[in-house]
Simulated assay, not measured.
Amino acid sequence: MSTRRPSRPPPAPAPPRISPLPFGGMIGLACVLFLDLGTAGVLRWWAVVGLVAAWIVLFVVACAWWTPHPRRLPWLAGMGLLLWAVVVVGVNLATR
């Protein structure tokens, strides 16, 4: 008795689904950069430089985490937004 071979080859495995989370995180980081730069007229120059430096660090971490940890990128944008709010309130209260 011979083994029967299938008439057509098995279908190729489906490609992995692309997660939208890292894209949302990068969009959030872009919004945080606009917030950081937009407060240049409200905050002292050193606070704006500190916010932009923190944003650069967050952006580098986001680029490093793009593939291995895509679910963490939106949290980075949230951390940037929280840092921005704390710095704006803190600097305005401290320099009164």
Rank of each mutant, 00 (worst) to 15 (best):
M1K: 04
M1H: 05
S2R: 10
R4E: 12
R4D: 08
R5H: 11
R5G: 07
R5Y: 13
P6T: 10
P6F: 11
S7Y: 08
R8S: 14
R8M: 12
P10Y: 10
P11W: 03
A12Y: 11
A12I: 06
A12K: 13
P13A: 05
A14C: 08
P15Y: 03
P15R: 09
P15A: 12
P16Q: 06
P20D: 06
P22T: 06
P22F: 01
P22K: 04
P22M: 07
F23W: 13
F23L: 15
F23G: 10
G24Y: 08
G24A: 11
G25A: 03
G25I: 00
G25H: 01
M26H: 14
I27E: 08
G28H: 00
G28S: 04
G28F: 01
A30R: 12
C31V: 15
C31D: 12
C31H: 09
V32A: 11
V32T: 06
V32F: 02
V32E: 02
V32L: 03
L33K: 07
L33E: 07
L33G: 07
F34K: 10
F34S: 13
L35F: 13
L35A: 14
L37E: 09
G38E: 03
A40S: 14
A40V: 11
G41M: 04
G41F: 02
V42Y: 11
V42H: 12
L43R: 02
W45E: 14
W45P: 12
W45I: 12
W46C: 03
W46L: 09
A47S: 15
V48A: 06
V49I: 13
V49F: 10
V49Q: 07
G50F: 12
L51M: 14
V52C: 10
V52W: 05
A53W: 10
W55T: 01
W55R: 02
I56G: 05
I56D: 02
V57A: 15
L58I: 02
L58R: 02
F59A: 15
V60Q: 07
V60L: 14
V61Y: 04
V61A: 13
V61H: 03
A62L: 04
A62Q: 02
C63N: 14
C63W: 15
A64E: 13
W65P: 01
W65T: 10
W66P: 00
W66M: 06
W66Q: 03
P68R: 05
P68S: 03
P68K: 03
H69W: 13
H69I: 08
P70E: 05
P70I: 05
P70R: 05
P70K: 03
R71L: 13
R71D: 12
R71M: 12
R71T: 12
R72L: 14
R72Q: 15
L73W: 03
L73Y: 05
P74M: 05
P74Y: 01
W75D: 02
L76S: 02
L76I: 07
L76Q: 01
A77H: 00
G78T: 03
G78M: 09
M79H: 08
G80F: 00
G80H: 00
L81Y: 07
L81V: 08
L82N: 05
L82W: 08
L83V: 09
L83A: 09
A85W: 08
V87T: 11
V87N: 02
V87E: 01
V88R: 04
V89C: 09
G90T: 03
V91D: 14
V91S: 09
V91R: 04
N92V: 12
L93M: 09
A94Q: 09
A94P: 00
A94Y: 09
R96Q: 10
